[in-house]
Amino acid sequence: MNFFWQELKYYRRSVVVWSLVLAIILLLFLSVYQSLSSQIDTFREIISRYPRALLAAINLRFEMFYSIYGYFGYILTFVWVAGAIQAMNYGTSVVSKEVSGKTADFLLSKPISRNRMLSEKFAAVFVLLLITNIIFIAVALLGAKLFSSGGFDVKIYILLAVTLFFIQLFFVALGFLFGSVLPKIKTVISITLPTVFVLFIIASFGGILDKPQFYYLTPFKYFDSLYLYQHGTYQYKYLWVLFGFVIICLITSYIIYNRKDINL
């Protein structure tokens, strides 16, 4: 378990910072909910004048402001983007930093297999994301208690909050694939930022053009807060796509990394 603990130690500061960032984004948005909901009619008036395409692009719908879920669902989009960057950074760097830091020679001359190394490293980033999400869900529940007028359904609220974890799972797997497959990555952020934004833009275009077939391409369309609110469950077809994608990414990473020449 040496790699596992080593990586947890390596990322311990980062995970605290990211959890704080996500919690602060959430609390800031939630804190304005009360004043928003009290002026819901004025607000509806304003946004009804916006072009439909714009509303679709920024994923904004009237229904959202009727309840804390809708509002939470809306602001989740921003949390997803930040969380996606965090997850993909972890996934990419946990593998690639041994090559970019030229420490791979040291590690690979040790009596461990590459499979064990990858498994422990993935387990470590998985735990880091779990920690992030536990903190996030706790803060989200706390925020809802503080800022929602009236009661709220904890189950739906948690289902909404857990979407961050699924989104992160998608991106950590994608990052892991990039980190294992690409020969040399100088700066992780130059890979992760464009990837996350391209997928986000695809989601926006999918929304504007109203083409649901696009939705499969990007995890940002896998979770619809309105659907979740109405049905009390996820859309499983997307969830299966997500899990399938994660598994394919991981298997490919293992196969390619095992065959790869590690050149510093």
């Binding site: 030229k102 420490t103 020679d105 040291f106 001359s109 009596p111 297999s113 510093l264």
Partner: peptide, 20 residues
């Protein structure tokens, strides 16, 4: 048998890089 072999091998690379 890479891992099994390396249990009994000590290697000093020409350029040493470690976690700073």
């Amino acid at each position: 048998f890479g891992p099994e072999i390396r249990e009994n091998v000590g290697y000093l690379p020409s350029e040493v890089f470690y976690y700073d």
